[in-house]
Write a protein that binds this DNA or RNA. Structure first.
Lengths: 237, 237
DNA sequence: CGGTTGTTTGAACTGATTCAATCTGTGTGG
DNA sequence: CCACACAGATTGAATCAGTTCAAACAACCG
């Protein structure tokens, strides 16, 4: 599996650490860490939460990547959001119309809304923290809409790769263990896996990336950013 | 202008009324109504808030429609969210990467974040209200992603029209004053105005709608919903 | 009336999908 | 160690949806 590589996205750290590195103050992170919860191993591309199921849970990703997805009437899947380590999925009233699946094998902390909500409600700084996270997710969603609506297929894939590198905190020029199958890239960027394949091959031909299996090396990061028109400001609230 | 028709989307009601009809309890609506604010007339397609400007304001739409938009590197515009009467745009820390423009002439209540934030922070029921609104906006954003990523151009336009009718509370079979220019529909659905024109003409030819100027009549609502694969559940949290 | 904004139409072109087949890598059981 | 199964990646050919460019037309307004 992909879970035992150095610097892999699926490397496991404590929730406390991941939350702190997401910007939460240590004493608040402790409170969440002490909340009753269990840690679940989620296998990729297996149903984890179905669309329409109730969402009286909080989830935080400890390692790996979760995706929220919806399915069109014709059965075509669209991934509408990703959650990287330290990020979470907050509870909502009533069922959610999206399902949840893992992109790669993931460790997820799952707690109950009734344990989570009071902690947040009693705690203005924590409210502000989650408020910021929600705004960041909103900004990412808007950027994805621009991606799907206005960029050509190469730029869409390039943008996803840039965003992923940024969210995984891969340093410029460093190699990245690409967590996505080509089908998943297609499901995120609104294309077919066939075309994603061609786009990736093109990008390699043009010297933007090198590929070894799933591993991707950005051989021309500035050009990559340009092709993707990637402005990472939206990721840092 | 379009602002003096009966049952027009731009019909003006008090903010208190619009918030109450959006689900806020009357006493809470009063508090927001009494907050220091000014009411601004916003002309369509004129710059109102530029991308990158600070967002230390709350806005509530009293009449008309506001849009959030982003612009791609190549200058193509994508509208990423709409705000109908009773809906609002909440303040955020730091600048927003989206701009704001009106779709039609709109009346907007504008208040300061420093007046708004304390009211909400001191008021758990109001927190919950805004939390629900944010979740609804999130759900709409996800639906838009499915729209742009997975549906063909006809379904995209049809879905937008269905959603708009629902958010304007137009009754089934009733006529709707379509608030959008074809260019705006293109900016929302990620197409060109040329293609939107053809799609609308097609839909009329197929007997889904009738058009008189900007007015649209849904002559076959069930079929329209089917074509759009429109499931309005996501609009009602 | 002239200026502006929005709609409509045509023709040529391009990018992406679809369908189908093949290839590759990895893990599993005999 | 080999045979097999399976998931994912790759390629080709035909087709089609949507864009682009350009031009004409309509409505409205000061």
């Amino acid at each position: 599996m992909t879970s035992r590589r150095t610097k892999s996205p699926t490397e496991s750290v404590s929730l406390r650490e991941t939350l702190i590195s997401a910007g939460l103050e240590p004493n608040l992170a402790d409170q969440l860490d002490k909340m009753p919860h269990r840690v679940v191993q989620v296998e990729p591309r297996r149903p984890f939460r179905e669309p329409g199921s109730p969402r009286d849970e909080v989830m935080f990703v400890r390692s790996g990547i979760l995706s929220k997805f919806k399915t069109d009437a014709s059965g075509r899947r669209q991934i509408v959001a990703l959650r990287f380590p330290g990020e979470g999925i907050l509870p909502r009233n009533g069922p959610a119309d999206y399902g949840i699946q893992a992109i790669v094998r993931s460790e997820v902390m799952v707690g109950k809304a009734k344990d989570f909500d009071p902690i947040v409600e009693a705690n203005p700084p924590m409210q502000r923290f989650f408020w910021r996270l929600v705004q960041r997710n909103e900004a990412i969603g808007y950027e994805w809409l621009v991606n799907c609506g206005r960029r050509d297929s190469t730029a869409r894939v390039a943008h996803l790769l840039c965003e992923t590198a940024a969210r995984l905190r891969v340093d410029e020029g460093e190699r990245m263990q690409n967590p996505f199958t080509q089908q998943q890239i297609a499901d995120i960027t609104g294309q077919t896996s066939v075309n994603v394949n061609r786009v990736l091959a093109d990008m390699e031909r043009q010297g933007l990336i090198k590929r070894k299996g799933r591993e991707i090396e950005f051989t021309d990061w500035p050009e990559m950013r340009r092709v993707a028109s990637f402005q990472p400001a939206y990721l840092t609230i």
